[in-house]
Amino acid sequence: MNEAPFLTVTRGDAPLLVSIPHTGIDLAGLESRFASEWTARCDTDWWIEKLYDFAAGQGATVVRTAISRSVIDVNRDPSGASLYPGQTTTGLCPTETFEGLPLYRPGGEPDPAEIDRRRVAYFAPYHEALQAEIDRLRGFHGKIVLYDCHSIRSVLPRLFDGTLPVFNLGTNDGKTADPVLQERVTAIMARTGESFVVNGRFKGGWITRNYGRPENGVHALQMELSCRGYMREPAGPSTPDNWPPAFDAGFAAPIRATLTGILETAAAWARD
């Protein structure tokens, strides 16, 4: 496999594959078509790559794309089908932000042919990389854990009611991971004293659902973090003046310690 220039693949030998699909801010030359560059980057999973930068040191393999989710979302069904039927969500090539703002200037939205081009150019290489690393790791581990990293604003009335728990673990209602692994990660979240939920509003996106095959030795977890858990998240709607806050390593240290423990536990479980 020839890695695309917008992909970063850091290879390790632990039975742990970390996917970081939504930290990219590269707009693929489409800046003039978006309503603004800030709007196009608003829903980035800000600073997740910094929060999890310990993973490679644990021997994990890390796959990350630099392409913005506003260009194409590599965690959506490539057919365009909704992963959450009946609920508001964004699509493969979204046209609105989480808060309902238009992403494109009038007439700038991609047509089906362009969506297909983006799928080939940006979506396919990410998934080829994931599959290649799954195959490589399964070559010398009986089972592996695919851990998909995400974050989102704590309050988004368009997407969910109230305030989202700090930790949101998804296994597609238990279909993508062994129940023992899910229980061990749940126990770690519970010990923090922070709010958490398992298979709540976010049960796992395309990455978790597509690759999580416990019967084939691939156990997939999605972790959706509320932004307030690791950054000084402002109240109210996002604006260019308040979003995103700068990354504060000291403020993020407690949740980073918890996430370190979660990945260590996942790798240890896979080695059992």
Rank of each mutant, 00 (worst) to 15 (best):
Q222G: 08
V18P: 06
R153E: 07
S238Q: 14
I255F: 07
G59H: 01
D13L: 02
V62D: 07
V180E: 15
M1R: 04
V18Q: 02
W46H: 15
W38Q: 15
G24F: 00
G107H: 10
P94Y: 03
P106R: 06
G139V: 01
N168Y: 12
S79T: 14
A81L: 14
G174Y: 11
A66K: 11
F6G: 04
T208R: 02
L16N: 10
K143W: 00
E37R: 15
A177N: 10
S238L: 13
S70M: 06
A270L: 00
V180R: 14
A66W: 08
D111F: 05
L181E: 07
T265S: 11
E224R: 07
R271I: 08
G142A: 12
V71T: 10
H150D: 11
R33P: 06
G12C: 02
D45H: 12
R228D: 08
L30F: 04
G204K: 05
V71Q: 14
V74I: 14
R256S: 09
R138N: 08
I255Q: 03
F251N: 05
G139T: 07
Y230Q: 05
V9I: 15
T23W: 03
A60P: 14
L259A: 01
N168T: 14
F160Q: 13
E109S: 10
Y104P: 03
A246G: 13
A14E: 00
A249Q: 09
A246R: 14
R201L: 00
G162Q: 08
Y126M: 08
S36R: 13
T61S: 14
D148M: 04
S154P: 07
D43L: 08
S151G: 12
V71K: 12
E128D: 15
T260D: 12
Q87F: 08
R69A: 09
V120R: 14
G217Y: 04
E224W: 06
P21E: 03
R232S: 00
T89S: 15
R228E: 04
Y147P: 00
Y211I: 03
N168R: 11
T208I: 02
L51S: 07
R41S: 05
V145D: 02
S68I: 13
E49Q: 13
E183S: 14
